[in-house]
Design a protein around this nucleic acid. Structure first.
Length: 323
DNA sequence: AACTTCATCAACCGCGGAGCT
DNA sequence: TAGCTCCGCGGTTGATGAAGT
């Protein structure tokens, strides 16, 4: 790869520009305290720091240190561990490769299915998706999506971003699908679901059932003043990140996790029903027929062919805000 | 055998939120 | 309240090996 001379030249030019920028910043550190400055902390100015692939010796140093001292304080960790790496690099190596809980090997078909459904619900929120697939890292899922799943969907005529058909019926006068809301670039960094879909008890609970089982009145407690879903999780530190509305306190990790599970399961349940009635061209593009649930969940699950895309968009907005 | 193209995925980069002072 | 640091995220890059010519 990258044997194309034009591209090589581009890369070379870009690299030179980057180097010059670094040199400028080192010579003339900006006096203003803008946020951008923080990105050029010594951690990121790789002066004398090693880059590129990790050696087994470095891996050994890092895991030994973390097993002894624990994770965290990434910025100072390399020095303490005797590594010539930046903290970010150490963190990434640990999270994506060295952590004992990291599962290696092929993505199983059920994992693939889960990724597809979670992506449909959450978009490119890789860390959230990874949080629900035990042993898989966000990087791994992102890579798998980009190299396998997106191509697979495209080959099936499905837009991997929207999970909708790439070539909708030209005779249809329906307005074009609204643009997919831009994923929140910084979702909750610590969602830490307490259990995963795969680990759940196997009990099928669909969204509307879930409300009943948890004594939650779907008309009240799960709606905010705008009539939208109350979504969110409590911060892992115990204090809510947002003071925007205290109502969010009702939605704990457990509840949210179950809520997400219920959406996924309901989605699956509906698709299975559809398959029994009319075989769709692709289960992932299925729209929601009237199945008599009559709850507001329908709007969130029926992202298929735009039966209620406005609701869907608002739901995704809420997800964005709350994660 | 030599070269080119393609696919994969580990690692890097820049950004923005959270928390502290 | 502003400034700063740390951390974690998603997007992107590029080294590497496999497959094709």
């Amino acid at each position: 790869m990258n044997k194309n001379p034009t591209r090589k030249k581009d890369i070379y030019i870009r690299e030179r520009e980057r180097e010059r920028k670094r040199e400028r910043e080192m010579r003339n550190p900006s006096p203003s305290g803008s946020k951008k400055i923080s990105t050029t902390t010594p951690c990121c100015i790789k002066v004398g720091l090693k880059r590129g692939p990790w050696t087994p010796e470095e891996d050994e140093l890092l895991s030994t240190y973390i097993n002894k001292e624990g994770e965290g304080r990434w910025r100072t960790l390399p020095k303490r561990a005797g590594l010539l790496r930046c903290g970010k690099s150490c963190r990434l190596r640990w999270m994506n490769y060295l952590r004992p809980s990291v599962k290696r090997g092929q993505i199983a078909p059920d994992e693939e299915d889960l990724i597809l459904r979670l992506h449909r619900l959450l978009g490119n929120r890789w860390s959230l998706i990874a949080g629900r697939i035990p042993g898989r890292t966000d990087n791994e899922i992102k890579n798998y999506w980009n190299t396998h799943l997106s191509k697979k969907l495209i080959s099936q005529g499905i837009d991997p971003r929207t999970h909708k058909p790439l070539n909708p019926n030209p005779n249809s006068h329906a307005p074009p699908a609204p643009p997919v809301p831009k994923p929140n670039p910084n979702p909750n960094p610590n969602p830490k679901p307490n259990f995963s879909l795969l680990e759940e008890t196997g009990r099928r609970v669909i969204g509307s059932e879930y409300l009943v089982e948890n004594n939650l009145d779907e008309d009240d407690s799960w709606r905010n003043s705008n009539g939208l879903l109350k979504m969110g999780v409590q911060s892992s530190h115990g204090n809510d990140r947002s003071n925007e509305d205290d109502e969010m306190d009702i939605c704990t990790d457990d509840i949210f996790s179950s809520f997400l599970n219920s959406l996924i399961n309901e989605d699956m349940f509906i698709q299975q029903n559809q398959q029994n009635m009319v075989a769709p061209s692709d289960p992932l593009v299925s729209s929601l027929p009237s199945l008599g649930y009559g709850t507001f969940w329908e709007a969130t699950v029926s992202s298929g062919t735009g039966a209620n895309e406005d609701e869907q968009g608002r739901f995704e907005d809420r997800i964005d805000k709350r994660f």
